[in-house]
Simulated assay, not measured.
Amino acid sequence: MALTIHVLDYGDIELETSFLVLGHECGRIRRVPVYGFLILGGTHPVLVDTGYRDNAIMESLGMRGLQFHDNMIENQLAKHGLKLGDIRYILHTHLHIDHAGKDDKFPMNTTVVLNRREMEFSVSGIMYPQYPKPDIMHLVERIYEPEAMRFLDLEITGAEEIIPGVWCEAAGAHTEGSMNVIVETAEGLACICGDVIYDFNDQIVNHVHTNNWMEPRVTGNHSGSKREEKGAIKKLLNNYTFLLPVHDRPAKIQNQQVVGRLAMTVPGPMSETVPERQWFPM
């Protein structure tokens, strides 16, 4: 059976636009989704990211959380006939406040998988308070329970397989320990890329404030160099048929360009197409 990726809707957050794209529309507030991803069709159900803990915790970043009953993780899984205890692996693209807030709802025999460098980075004090204490302390507790945690060393080992057809690789962007999750689908490789990309239109399609051909715009929220961010985005556009960020709808990629957007399942029908030469700045 072919692997499929189902998008889970964990709610929305309101934040400043320049957080999404560096220097773009400073002071303007935008509402963006927070997605998780359920990988089905393999040996075990796999979940990528768990969203944010509650609306109140987003206030620590000066953001507004918009999470309602339907967005609760147990309700999102129930739409696919699953309970919390049915998830075998939770993979984290990284551990920021809106990505790892619901791990404590899962039993200790659900294995949380993350890049060891991300765990180190989360307790370094860099980018605080994007790593809230309740989320990180729960992960520390998991370290001492058999099978509750699996660390990857992606900068040393290269890609590591989780189940057949699903593997992780170092993202090389956003945070020092961010990782991408790669899934073999019937229509090509899909990459769940966390926050390496926030906004396809403003970073890639119309790439605001950028003159050069096919030069992506970086986000306003990264810990590495701008060159590393650009290179990581270009790598995604070069290597994968589908890209799935956490705060924008999935995209289909051809010849390093966005050719369509998808809804809540990958592979799936494209809901719209993008003119070929919209890479030029407006």
Rank of each mutant, 00 (worst) to 15 (best):
F121Q: 02
F121N: 04
S122A: 15
S122C: 11
V123K: 10
I126K: 11
M127A: 11
M127W: 07
M127Y: 09
Y128Q: 13
P129G: 06
P129H: 08
Q130F: 14
Q130H: 10
P132M: 04
K133N: 04
K133C: 04
K133Q: 13
M137G: 00
M137D: 14
M137N: 12
L139W: 02
R142S: 09
Y144N: 11
E147N: 14
E147C: 09
E147T: 09
A148N: 04
M149T: 06
F151W: 08
D153H: 15
A159V: 02
E161T: 15
I163Q: 03
P164A: 00
P164R: 04
E169K: 13
A170C: 06
A170M: 07
A171Q: 14
G177V: 03
S178K: 08
S178R: 01
M179D: 03
M179L: 15
V181C: 06
I182M: 07
I182T: 04
V183P: 14
V183T: 10
V183N: 07
V183K: 08
E184N: 13
E184S: 11
A186T: 10
L189K: 15
A190G: 10
C191F: 07
C193D: 04
G194S: 05
D195E: 14
D195W: 07
V196K: 03
V196W: 01
V196N: 12
I197K: 09
I197N: 09
Y198W: 08
Y198F: 15
D199C: 12
F200P: 05
D202T: 11
Q203P: 12
Q203M: 07
Q203I: 01
I204A: 05
H207Q: 13
H207G: 15
V208K: 12
N212W: 12
W213Y: 15
W213D: 00
M214P: 00
E215Q: 13
E215F: 14
E215I: 00
V218T: 12
V218L: 00
V218H: 07
T219S: 15
T219N: 11
G220H: 02
H222Q: 09
S223T: 05
S225I: 00
S225G: 13
S225Y: 01
K226E: 14
K226P: 03
E228C: 03
E228Q: 10
E229K: 10
G231T: 00
A232R: 10
I233A: 09
K235E: 01
L236S: 08
N239R: 14
N239A: 13
Y240K: 08
F242M: 08
L243T: 05
L244A: 09
L244H: 06
V246K: 14
H247T: 13
D248Q: 06
P250D: 00
A251M: 06
